[in-house]
Design a protein around this nucleic acid. Structure first.
Lengths: 338, 338
DNA sequence: CTGTTAGCGCATTCAG
DNA sequence: CTGAATGCGCTAACAG
């Protein structure tokens, strides 16, 4: 910077003013300085700036190492939105979302001086850490966590999505609809379970016990092995597409046709969903929107720290994508068809 | 830090020594300082440290927004390995790997003062930028790029993997093996194409023209629509699992059985591969290993800048995973079966 | 083994 | 509209 000042024949701080786009500058001076900057290929030192301004212009994102479609998509969109908003974004992927691992990630990020943190794919333990952190003073926005367990939250309306899926099945005439849930320590899994129950309840139907998987195709396959024997079940709503995929395979192996014998609905709309056998009906989530809102909220939290925004803003509405894995049940048992 | 010094009754400097784990300290003093640090909840300011040491302890990772399995898995493993190595890791996902976008990402990272960059999933344009960057002084390790186009490179031996896949098909007795390649602007796609050609050539077989997809299931499905008419083709080697998945669907729709009528091999071993219909034979890549080596190499590049390591170290060997999508051709046309 | 003295590169007072 | 001083929090020399 001293070099630039010398070359432009001005002082230190005039250069600083140019860089920070201050207004009180004679255009000629500014031009001269800009010229010198370009000529010398000068780049401001962000460490020095951070030291004096006490602003690192950096935010942290905590994700999980596991690489499920939803969380990792959100990680990407949050990253992109953060950068667009002018931040450097520093990521850390924890092996699992245990209290210790998340706390560790938070520490790492704090040491770097991040101004705020976005925590993705939160389960209960992770939420505890988030709450503690907020108390300590560094804003944490939780994505896809429960709205009631953290102050700053953004996410898709999971329950609404699950209701959409279930209602679709209901509308087709199904009454025996089983839910293959995700791990219930995850708030997302619980919200989807809840949505399914709500819809079943609203339709006046008996709510069969749900199954619980771990988001993987393997678990869907394994649980599908059990479901296959229950011939009363005409439809399954899986809490994500991976498990639905495993289910499809189990059904296929058992010689039960989809959607002839049983309809299957997933959740997420992974890019492959439309190319499964058969193409999967599922619930699409607008991850890009989630990413943007997360950053928006984080900025607000950093600037303000005050009361959070309106609840409606935190929820992104999902959308049902109907494909070929769902149809009316073969023999329509009429019963609770209102 | 001044507070800590005061509380411990020592100087500035001694505190600094404790933090940096220097050896010349009386244990008693160290203990006293550590006590004070804990009591005050003191955390070193990394900006100040970066300013004086000229080391940010930060590295950058450039990935692509698209979210394909391979690149995003590597992104995660690189992130993890970087953190284990004591770095802060800052990510940026570019919309596409064009020259402009990558150059932009590099600039962003440089502004942050990263000590080095890992560039993931490189195509030709991105490689240009990487080379330019190396010349300018900031080390760039390219993952999955061509070994000949950049100095610091780590990756899976794509060609070897493709040969593995092709040889498997060959060993089963197939002679008409078509390759559905990835976008050939990607070095990975070219290497896999090359491996297939090598194996075909070595077997003394005619090399049919390849098809070119874009990594997506959709493209596999589309290209599969064409392949379906070519009844002479008994086996297809797809350059990734997504395209193989689309292919499976196209084949299924056309009523051609897999592996009865045609065998299919993929590449990547995505977690769902074992649960497709039928379970997919594919080539597995050890992404964690790639991530570790990338960081290892980046450290070397940062420290040294000198000659690169031995070529063997840059290549991770892939592994064939045989599942149910491959079998001997129905009518064995003997011809080049050695 | 420990304290003292400088200065990293910048933004922020305050004067001109 | 611009320049001169001051200090952010820390580490790197030196002294002692």
């Amino acid at each position: 910077m001293a070099d630039v000042a010398r070359l432009a024949g001005v002082s230190h701080q005039t250069v600083s003013r140019v860089i920070n786009g201050q207004s009180n500058l004679r255009p000629a001076t500014r031009l001269r300085v800009e010229e010198a900057i370009k000529q010398l290929g000068y780049r401001p030192n962000s460490a020095a700036r951070a030291l004096v301004t006490r602003r690192s212009a950096t935010i942290g994102v905590i994700g999980s190492k596991s690489g499920f479609w939803g969380p990792s998509s959100i990680h990407r969109t949050v990253q992109a939105a953060g950068r667009e908003a002018g931040y450097f974004v520093s990521s850390v992927n924890v092996p699992d979302l245990t209290r210790a691992a998340v706390a560790d990630a938070v520490d790492h990020l704090r040491d770097q001086g991040v101004e705020g943190i976005v925590l993705i794919a939160a389960n209960d333990e992770a939420l505890d850490v988030a709450r503690a952190q907020e108390a300590v003073g560094i804003p944490v926005v939780v994505v896809e966590g429960s709205l009631y367990q953290a102050r700053w939250t953004v996410g898709v309306d999971q329950a609404a999505g699950a209701e959409l899926a279930t209602q679709h099945l209901l509308g087709l005439g199904h009454t025996e609809i089983v839910h293959v849930a995700g791990p219930l320590a995850w708030t997302e899994a619980r919200a989807r379970l809840q949505g399914w129950q709500n819809a079943m309840h609203a339709a006046g139907l008996r709510i069969a016990p749900h199954l619980e998987g771990d988001w993987t195709a393997e678990s869907g396959y394994r649980l599908g092995g059990d479901l296959v024997r229950r011939t009363d079940v005409t439809a399954v709503f899986a809490a994500n597409d991976q498990m639905a995929l495993g289910l499809l395979r189990a059904l296929w192996e058992a010689g039960r046709s989809v959607p002839g014998d049983v309809s299957v609905v997933g959740f997420d709309d992974i890019p492959e969903a439309g190319f499964l056998i058969p193409p999967l009906t599922t619930v699409r989530q607008d991850f890009a929107e989630v990413g943007h809102r997360a950053i928006e909220m984080l900025r607000a939290a950093i600037a303000d720290g005050g009361p959070d925004g309106d609840v409606p803003d935190r929820l992104v509405q999902p959308e049902l994508v109907v494909r070929a894995s769902t149809a009316a049940p073969r023999r329509s048992k009429r019963k609770a068809k209102a």
